[in-house]
Nucleic acid binder design. Structure first.
Lengths: 367, 367
DNA sequence: CTGAAAGCGCTTACAG
DNA sequence: CTGAAAGCGCTTACAG
């Protein structure tokens, strides 16, 4: 029964709990207890276990085996829309991660950043292979294969920004009322001729003007909600929405904002105010306006969405809708953890936003 | 043999591979092959496997069980000195993570951020419990319990900035020559009266002047290497190192830099130039100098180390030693991956640094 | 305070 | 192209 040591050692494998138990002449469970339930055995025996472990080069119970037995990994998975390295270059994403990590850390959970996806080359399979207890899906379009893969995995999942489906916990802002606040600000200043730079409205990656039909039928709720917010505010002020040009961008980059603005600003009846669905787009709009020799905010008012750090330092500083990305991350993390703990935790209230008025908006020049 | 379905279903557990195999009347290995080796079975059978899986709500092989069997997790662990949320607030750390994540992603590996540690409350045990294939230890003092725990875990480990021990792969910059370059720059400008704001030199958290003995005997190689670099450069110019006041700070914060400078600048023979071991410390030095009514760089030259984003936007902009944090992360990630792959990969060369001359340094006023 | 047995859910040789 | 068996390394009831 003893003397395991004399057996032909197969290639000197890493020491195991069982091996330590044999060496010591106790049962594996005693060794397990030494690590996991100190109260279950005498301090002296526990000491002997650790000594033997040390001597055999046993570093403690293998976390993978423990995970299999216990059914959990101790990590939250974060799924990001793009390459991970982009997440660390995106100030909003970094703030969001800061929030998620603080929630995870409160519960002694790790954060696993899921690799391998870019919009061009989706590797949704990895979502099924990753060792986590649940997912936070951040900044991923609601019909994306990454979201599907996360939901199919059958683990608790919280979706951020883009609601995925009925019943899936969601964290985000009230896009409709936030967008309305942006439009109302411009109306108060006296603007009547608007243009909108929107996120994408379909999988087709279309770039150009979106008619009312396309606006209404889009499956992208964030895009739709923001358009609805703009429309509602303008409607209240008797600005007919059907006459407001909406330029759709297949993404949210400065370059796309630039393109959109080039088109919008060459319209026969040039808008005096442009509403952009993100600060990135808005900054591109400002680039285009400046390029065209327009002076901001005199010739054109611009409002963004997000309040990224670059918004405040833009020239002129960008008026925008601020959201608290870190708080969003914290809420997403906490909501996921509540699900993990078996709580039937409801999705929390939507996060509040705030209109931040800066130098990129003013009364229209011709009023 | 069949009809597993008719057996008393214990609480409707999650479906397993075995369950799918029973349902289909094939062996578990066939189901496993359907997921892992498509070529091993007919497309038709494979389809039937997936259909059955779908019907039973089986989401594919459990990654934990697979991990146990295969002996790997598919994730790299990143150990950070402080709370994770601080890492996402630290621009150098974020750039570093960006680099590590790009290396991980190249190999389809996830990044697990290890939770639960702050300098005040170390939870090194978590390092033994986390499901990863190896560790990158970032920004952790070489005698810290986190480093010990990572090494004891017995997984491949790469240490960054603070070399941990002989034989442990290491990524960092040449601290000695970088520090020397900083001092040489000041010497070239004509400075002869120096002061140094150093990192900590011991576990005791001491704050104050460090004598030669303490400088020489410190176990912190980074602190020592930088002091040696300063000393070597000054020695070459016949500035006696023994007369250069070295103020030791138990950390690297703006507040500590402030404190150090308050003391150094009230010395009877006031230095005309201060060398700081980090930009954070240097910014604190500048705060203190301004507070005291000194004008920079006329009354005092300051050189930092790191080139964090705040350095360029400081007033005046900070002269410093630039290091490429993202590249450092990428190298650390690649080095770890090479170890994982069984390569006996040597530690790569030290990363190069670059003196960036900005407005915080000038000829001494009284020369 | 300690043990013997079962089993977490899969994949890996070894056979055919 | 498919199977039966062994086993990855642990922890969890169940007993005593």
């Amino acid at each position: 029964m003893h003397g395991g040591e004399s057996k032909e050692p197969h290639r000197q494998r890493r020491a195991t709990l069982k091996r330590v138990a044999e060496e010591l002449g106790v049962s594996p469970m005693t060794v397990s207890n030494a690590y996991n339930r100190p109260g279950q055995l005498s301090p002296a025996l526990r000491e002997r276990v650790f000594e033997t472990a040390q001597r055999l080069g046993y570093a403690g119970p293998d976390p993978i085996a423990r995970g299999l037995r216990r059914g959990r990994t101790g990590a939250l998975g974060v799924i990001y829309d793009s390459r991970l390295s982009y997440a660390f270059a995106d100030t909003a994403a970094v703030a969001f991660m800061r929030g998620v990590s603080s929630a995870a850390e409160e519960e002694r959970l790790g954060l696993l950043l899921v690799p391998g996806s870019s919009p061009e080359q989706r590797d949704a399979a990895i979502v099924g292979e990753v060792l986590v207890d649940g997912f936070v899906v951040y900044s991923v379009a609601e019909d994306d294969s990454l979201v599907r893969a996360a939901l199919e995995r059958g683990l608790p999942t919280v979706v951020v920004d883009q609601p995925a489906a009925e019943g899936v916990p969601f964290v985000g802002v009230d896009d409709r009322s936030s967008a309305a606040a942006a439009a109302e600000h411009l109306l108060r200043l006296g603007h009547r001729r608007f243009g909108v730079v929107s996120f994408g409205l379909g999988r087709d990656g279309a770039k150009g003007f979106a008619d009312l039909e396309r606006q209404r039928t889009t499956l992208y709720r964030v895009s739709r909600a923001r358009l609805e917010g703009y429309a509602a505010a303008l409607g209240t002020a008797d600005v007919p929405w059907s006459e407001v040009p909406v330029f759709e961008c297949p993404g949210s980059s400065r370059a796309l904002g630039f393109e959109a603005a080039v088109t919008l600003l060459s319209l026969p009846s040039r808008p005096t105010a442009l509403l952009a669905a993100s600060d990135q787009l808005a900054l591109g709009v400002m680039d285009a306006a400046t390029d065209r020799g327009l002076s901001l905010p005199n010739d054109l008012s611009v409002v963004g969405f997000d309040d990224i750090p670059e918004a405040a330092s833009a020239d002129p500083p960008l008026t925008t809708i601020r959201q608290d990305h870190a708080e969003k991350g914290r809420m997403a993390g906490r909501l996921l953890i509540a699900r993990l703990r078996g709580g039937s935790a409801e999705s929390p209230e939507l996060l509040t936003t705030e209109l931040v008025v800066r130098g990129s908006t003013a009364r229209p020049h011709d009023v």
